[in-house]
Amino acid sequence: MVKMIKDQVRNNIPEFRPGDEVRVDWKVGQDRKRIQSYEGLVIAVKGKGINKTFTVRKQAFGIGVEKIFPLHSPLISSIEVLRRGKVRRSKLYFMRERYGKAAKLKEKREF
């Protein structure tokens, strides 16, 4: 990897996987000062290196919303993992067809 790209890669990102529920604090607005939280289920992680992105899905007022974040974007002020889900695949696109109780994932517990 080229140094100027390496310099932009962030090292302070918590580890999370598809199936986890996360809260992303995201800088918004004209001057990118205001912080907005976006909470939901990670349904996909794509790409590698600085191109890595993750998709977070949530229900907003009864409507499914998905937002794709570049993992290394400086606009992400923090990512917090709220819940670890137990899943067997890397892309959880089947969650789009589920709502209500069917959209619940088993929690991964560590003993």
Partner: peptide, 19 residues
């Protein structure tokens, strides 16, 4: 040409770049 990648500007915008 090395290849293409992504860079973030100071304002946080993502730019597609060729290295």
């Amino acid at each position: 040409k090395i290849g293409m990648s992504r860079m973030f500007t100071e304002s946080g915008d993502s730019v597609a770049v060729t290295l």
